[in-house]
Nucleic acid binder design. Structure first.
Lengths: 260, 260
DNA sequence: CACTATTTGTCCGTATGTATG
DNA sequence: TCATACATACGGACAAATAGT
């Protein structure tokens, strides 16, 4: 095998020095196991010797040995005295590929391949912060829409939106069938500008239930502001807050650059 | 407090029975700590008694006591004999609002307004998956770079990258001073295509330490593939995985649409 | 064949940490 | 709080298998 320093990073070395009560041998074992499972140390390759491990990670030989013995017990490596320890695990890249979804156009196509449940569709008084963003006078109402989008029965997105400027009434069924972008267009509203902010949040009880996950699980948060231009001024007409389940939805974008 | 069964889920109960060698008292301590930090057990509320914990989780009273003593040592709870153990931590959902950052160009400008710490900068054997993406033969090495970016002393991003195709050697100091985009350009590499995938993940111990947050806290995950074009074929030359602290970094994009 | 270096296997004694009743 | 049992971790010592000289 190549030099041990070329396999393990300094940050990994530090990992072992953290003062957690998890046994040393187990942390070293985990480190080595990961290196084998992700193919950093390939099948057939010789592992570092107990002595090398002990010196590199600053542990006793007994501890290094214990870690390697654990690997051997799982048949990830084979140990023979005099020869050393060799990897007996064949790394095979996983075929997986999460469904990837892209920008505005693709979002519409995705919408057609998913099921929507409308939880709320009513003219309501929005929270003050959103009312101000929408430029509505005090007491005015906006269309409040809450939906959950699923794919193959698995919910992946929780959508909550506040819309102003929708003249004609829109039925609940329309929102289940069409995207809001399509509805805006049909109503003659020409969006001129959209800003999106992506972040991450922990699921609260409500979201956890909607997206069938655990409280505290990480979610992708997306806030979209949609503007129209009236009298040369930009006016927000739609505020959208989406929470996505990261295992079932990822946000992908392609950028072409350096064309010049 | 309410019934102990109403606080902890069955999966959490099982969590303690896992056959990991981490000490029992520490696992119980972690469980309780999270429940306090995320507000499941509110400030001033009474914790379960040692006896209750012991029975619920199937451990001895001493072990339950040890876990609670650890909490008390961190001043998350106050213990008084005869009265019980009470939470002394005020959970406050973060108000958020962070500096907003945008696409490639803005990323460079942001880079200039932040401090970088290089944790790793060495040619190393990459995990097999990444080695294949980079089109490297077995055993080949790539430049492994781990950095943490801070703003006003607050770390907001943890960057780990694997780069192939950097001909001339690049010093650790260069990476602290320039962005990788600039370095690629200087080396004459013309990136022609970039894909980015955004998701959300929970912080592990390592990331939590780097970004000064809690284990399990939601982080923004960004994976960037950077391609050059050689002989009309796209070739990956850089793989970047970034984890952002969502309170200190958000991903914002502006889209102009409906121009037609 | 012996000789040597390497590497794993086994054993000792000791100290500390963990978990129980 | 105590006594007890077990696991972890260390350093050291020596034996046994392997490979090369």
């Amino acid at each position: 095998m190549s030099s041990i320093a070329e396999i393990f990073s300094e940050s990994q070395l530090r990992e072992l020095q953290q003062d957690r009560p998890t046994p040393l041998y187990f942390r070293l074992y985990s480190l080595l196991k990961h290196a084998i499972l992700d193919g950093t140390i390939g099948n057939g390759a010789q592992m570092p010797t107990e002595q090398q491990l002990a010196e590199t990670f600053g542990v006793s030989r007994i501890t290094a040995k214990r870690a390697m013995d654990e690997l051997a017990a799982e048949e990830l490596v084979q140990r023979r005295r005099g020869r050393g320890t060799h990897v007996t695990y064949e790394y095979t890249p996983k075929p997986v590929r999460a469904p990837l979804v892209g920008m505005l156009q693709e979002i519409e196509s995705m919408a057609r391949h998913s099921e929507v449940k409308v939880l709320e569709c009513k003219k309501q008084t929005p929270p003050a912060r959103i009312r101000e963003l929408l430029g509505l006078p005090d007491g005015d109402k906006a269309l409040h829409l809450v939906r959950v989008r699923s794919r193959d029965g698995q919910p992946f997105g929780h959508y909550e939106s506040w819309s102003a400027g929708l003249g004609k009434p829109v039925s609940k069924r329309d929102f289940a069938r069409f995207t809001r972008l399509e509805i805006f267009r049909k109503q003659g509203l020409k969006l001129t500008h959209v800003t999106q902010t992506i972040s991450a949040v922990a699921a609260d009880e409500n979201l956890a239930a909607s997206l069938q996950t655990e409280v505290g699980a990480p979610l992708i948060s997306l806030v979209r502001h949609s503007f129209i231009t009236v009298a040369k001024r930009e006016q927000l007409v739609d505020y959208l807050q989406v929470f996505y389940h990261p295992d079932r939805f990822q946000y992908q974008m392609d950028l072409e650059i350096d064309k010049a």
